[in-house]
Design a protein around this nucleic acid. Sequence first.
DNA 1: TAGATTGTTAATCGATTAACAATC
DNA 2: TAGATTGTTAATCGATTAACAATC
Lengths: 216, 216
Amino acid sequence: MEAMRRIPDATVDRLPVYLRVLDDLTASRSTTVSSEQLADLAGMNAAKVRKDLSYLGSYGVRGVGYDVDYLRFEITSQLGLGQQSGVAIVGLGNLGRALANHAGLTVRGFPVTALLDTDARKVGTSVSGVTISHLDALSPDDGIAIGIITTPPGVAQDVADRLVAAGVRAILNFAPIVLTVPEHVALRSVDVTLELQVLSFYASHQGSGTAAAHGS
Amino acid sequence: MEAMRRIPDATVDRLPVYLRVLDDLTASRSTTVSSEQLADLAGMNAAKVRKDLSYLGSYGVRGVGYDVDYLRFEITSQLGLGQQSGVAIVGLGNLGRALANHAGLTVRGFPVTALLDTDARKVGTSVSGVTISHLDALSPDDGIAIGIITTPPGVAQDVADRLVAAGVRAILNFAPIVLTVPEHVALRSVDVTLELQVLSFYASHQGSGTAAAHGS
DNA sequence: TAGATTGTTAATCGATTAACAATC
DNA sequence: TAGATTGTTAATCGATTAACAATC
């Protein structure tokens, strides 16, 4: 109803959490949800939920709440989840294989369409029905939207550069190193050791303090 | 030099990144680093680096920079990384196994001392030299400091409750569900699908926008 | 001393939250 | 109408950043 404002980064980080909760609500046949319920289920506060949802436009009904299906539709659309986004996984070590085997990715609209490595012993074999290609074969023709890097840190920047050259618009990096990518490419990193170190801080400074780690 | 202020959450999230960079500097025999260099290597801005480090106390030397070794010592100490923290991994699916095989955890002071599952076919077998025990065997006597949850979402809250009962002070959750834990237990969650959805937003709203996802 | 770089202040910006009028 | 709940405002809080005096 209002002129569209830019959605704040903090809100973008939370939209997928709301979406997951809404999916659960649909599974349990709820058709309507209040900001209070949604906040409980998402581990947040109702005022924040209403503020976040207000950036999508005004879709709630006073005295009633939000329509679950319509909200899912709106969030899905805002997140750009309308069509499938092909994913390439580079580096088929333990983690890369685990992700390649993760059926949930395809279900959620992120089908793994390419697996890449430089190890001659791995190239040609397949994981979950997808054949591993040599990294050199990576090309813009592959139509890959998102690259996932699960290589050792030493080669991660080179891999990122190749993914960018191949036209990916986003990279999810699991290598423990700071990557540099052009402005137009979105980047988030996940580092398990780093998470454990942050947890170590709060565990030793006894005062809880965290809630949900993401990427950046 | 100043009275100790509480370290802001945003700063705590960055200390492990600085630590990683300082480790690299040590490996390349640098003994001193300026806030400008550190910022470049960590993908940040020098003012932020100086502000962050100022919460540790005043350890830089004007006109010179920071002593790499001393800074590592200080960050290590603040993060509570002085002694090893035993880690238990619950749920030995693809991801749990990948983490159990990750040698980097032990190197960084987080040795995996327990593997737990409820599948009778897995209990008794071992991964990376650690035997998988039944979840029911989990006990406070195990001396586990941190629990990592890599189970399906349906059982994750129950697992979290058991870990809390066993005395863990921190939990790293990979299950796609919002967990509830007592105040005194630190919690962070990593959800790959959620990261991809956030990336999808920035990729489709062409304007980059992210930098380093963590947990919360 | 001249040059470099810190530590800190203060301004700015963005995120959170409580409160409540609007309204279903 | 009475009750419930949204959408929005405004206050507050925390994080970022530029600027510069302090000082090695």
